[in-house]
């Protein structure tokens, strides 16, 4: 079964957000709520409403898998968004679940 999370960018500071339980935006992927293909639809609708409310921008879904220590996006791009740039370990958001060459 494919797993997804909803991500966005916070308007005020441009920081990355993940949609967590109870429709609360979370700074860390670890706190994101995973959805299946059906569950993602209302979550994206909530995201669209948040755009209209001028709280976030650029809402979209990201495919993830369950790794031993948490959710892990499939694409390199989303892993960099989730865990931070690979070139400044001191700026990482969370330890990369399976390492991005840091």
């Amino acid at each position: 079964m494919k797993l997804f999370v909803v991500t966005a960018t916070n308007l005020r500071d441009g920081a990355i957000r993940w949609l967590g339980a109870g429709n609360i935006w979370q700074p860390l992927l670890a706190n994101a709520q995973p959805f299946d293909a059906a569950g993602i639809v209302p979550a994206l609708a909530f995201g669209a409403a948040e755009i209209s409310a001028q709280r976030v921008i650029g809402v979209y879904q990201v495919e993830v898998r369950r790794a031993p220590d948490g959710l892990d996006p499939l694409s390199t791009r989303e892993r960099i968004r989730a865990f931070g740039p690979t070139v400044h370990p001191e700026f990482s958001y969370a330890p990369a679940t399976s390492g991005l060459g840091v």
Binding site: T9, G14, A15, I16, G58, I80, R81, G84
Partner: peptide
């Protein structure tokens, strides 16, 4: 000159 990039503006 203000862009939106991966992690911030």
């Amino acid at each position: 000159g203000l862009y939106l990039q991966l992690h911030a503006y």
